[in-house]
């Protein structure tokens, strides 16, 4: 009865229907209003280094249709893959080019965006959504502009990839192709869809 692997598995959502809905709504408003941090009350205790906020987004959005790619720190923890596989049913893939969602525990070491699916001119929606785990939001050292923002908005999160502004500019230049970012952590989620212009503040 008490299989060791089953005993070690962390629990999923208390209420799969409403917790998934609330997590989705946070992600939806985050992408609709880029840079504005939406509260995400993730009542989860996923295995480290997966953060509760990132886990809540994965459980709300992923299933057997969405291969997940894990960055090195997450892939190094077998419990993370087991947790995601059990609760979402999503295959964990080794090849970033095959992923629909990618979970990144260490944004500083993030692969180039071009390693992930960027969509095609005919089907720009066939692109990856990157879920970056961040420690904090605040200190607006970036300026955002684009759909969803009235005028401009300040934004800051840490940690981010070193060449973040250049990467986002290259991503914007591909529009309507490109990748979409959800930044999760510190009790919230922020979105940087491909439509946003990111500049140094």
């Amino acid at each position: 009865m008490s299989h060791p692997a089953a005993a070690a598995l962390s629990a999923g959502f208390d209420d799969p229907v409403f917790d998934a809905q609330a997590s989705f709504r946070a992600a939806m408003w985050a992408l609709a209003r880029p840079g504005r941090v939406e509260r995400l009350d993730a009542r989860l205790a996923p295995p480290a280094p997966l953060l509760p906020e990132a886990a809540a987004l994965a459980l709300a959005l992923c299933d057997y249709e969405t291969p997940i790619w894990l960055d090195a720190p997450l892939a190094a923890a077998p419990a993370v893959g087991a947790f995601l596989r059990f609760h979402t049913g999503a295959p964990i893939v080794e090849e970033p080019g095959a992923a629909r969602f990618a979970l990144i525990a260490d944004p500083r070491g993030l692969n180039d965006f071009t390693a992930f699916p960027q969509g095609s001119p005919d089907y720009p929606d066939a692109s990856v959504t990157l879920i970056l785990q961040v420690e904090s939001f605040g200190k607006s050292d970036l300026v955002l502009e684009g759909p969803g923002i009235k005028g401009t908005a300040g934004f800051g999160a840490a940690p981010l990839p070193v060449d973040f502004v250049a990467r986002m500019a290259a991503n914007r230049a591909l529009f309507p192709r490109g990748v979409d970012l959800l930044l999760a952590g510190a009790g919230g989620v922020a979105g940087l869809p491909r439509s946003v212009f990111v500049k140094e503040g």
Binding site: V17, A20, M28, D125
Partner: peptide, 30 residues
């Protein structure tokens, strides 16, 4: 009924489409 009629997998599929639709304003996501 399941909350709001649809099953959870269908809602997830629609929610993913909504997120991509927001990211590419005006583009029709299948």
């Amino acid at each position: 009924y399941n909350f709001a009629y649809l099953d959870e997998q269908t809602k997830r599929m629609i929610r993913r489409a909504i997120l991509k639709a927001i990211a590419v304003p005006g583009y029709q996501v299948p």
